[in-house]
């Protein structure tokens, strides 16, 4: 379980997250909405442990352990992983090698790459000249190899073309054990019990909801999180009345 209590984060002199409470149970996937610049990426970076996102108050618990002060690699080893919105280029490191590093030991990278239609990129340097949509697939490939228990997705579907979007959507769903189709073959109860993976997905468009059965949604606005609600309803609300209005209506109805 991921449990965030009264988290406040500063970036330089700027108070970027003012008050964050968040709880993700094993098997749950949450959707995070919010306008540009509201601090969504910052929240993910703080959970991952980027030191420039300085925690000034509150705490982050993962699997019962207080990880607020842990370095990035220890959080990764505990089972937290992230698909980045804007990852850096690593010159001279082939994507193929990166996949091996993510897996931690021998893995069939070609097989993994096929799942996200990425075989032809394996011999390119990590993120070097990748297009927006290619970056998303590269990130997804790395995360697949890493297979963490908590997956943080920063806008995984934005910029992905119509043909690849279902591939991306389905891959994320299967990583999070949230395939909409899985329900057909097993009883709903059983599927739920077997689910252990946790997900936190940032999206603007909500396209991802067509593939992933998300449990909860929240809006991040002005450094604060709204109350929890149904992600589809939030999406509709944002579309009809905008973030601010929507924030108010969720808070009121809860």
């Amino acid at each position: 379980m991921l449990l965030i209590e009264d988290l406040q984060v500063k970036l330089g002199d700027k108070e970027i997250l003012k008050h964050i409470d968040l709880e993700i149970q094993p098997g749950e996937t949450h959707i995070l909405f919010g306008p540009n610049g509201s601090g969504k990426t910052s929240l993910l970076m703080a959970i991952m442990g980027y030191p420039q996102y300085e925690v000034v108050a509150g705490k982050i618990m993962f699997k019962g352990e207080d990880i607020t002060r842990l370095p990035i690699d220890e959080r990764a080893r505990l089972g937290i992983g992230m698909s980045y919105q804007r990852p850096p280029t690593i010159n001279g490191l082939k994507t193929r090698q990166m996949v091996q590093l993510c897996a931690g030991d021998e893995v069939d990278e070609v097989d993994l790459a096929k799942r996200v239609n990425f075989e032809e990129f394996l011999d390119r340097d990590v993120n070097a000249g990748f297009s927006g949509g290619e970056i998303k697939r590269s990130e997804l490939l790395q995360l697949t190899a890493q297979a963490p228990d908590l997956m943080l997705f920063d806008e995984p579907e934005s910029g992905v073309d119509m043909e690849n979007i279902s591939l991306v959507g389905k891959t994320i769903a299967s990583l999070l054990q949230k395939d909409l189709s899985a329900v057909v073959t097993k009883t709903i109860m059983k599927t739920k019990l077997e689910r252990k993976k946790m997900g936190l997905i940032i999206t603007h468009t909500g396209f991802i909801l067509d593939y992933v059965s998300a449990d909860k949604g929240q809006v991040l606005y002005d450094g604060m999180l709204s109350c929890v609600s149904n992600p589809r309803e939030i999406l509709t609300c944002i579309g009809e009345s905008g973030y601010k209005e929507c924030l108010r209506c969720i808070t009121e109805t809860n």
Binding site: I72, P88, I90, L101
Partner: peptide, 16 residues
């Protein structure tokens, strides 16, 4: 070396 690149690899499980 860009700190960002080190952090990126660390988030994939590598030590510093």
């Amino acid at each position: 070396i860009a700190q960002e690149e080190i952090a990126y690899l660390m988030s994939r499980g590598l030590s510093e």
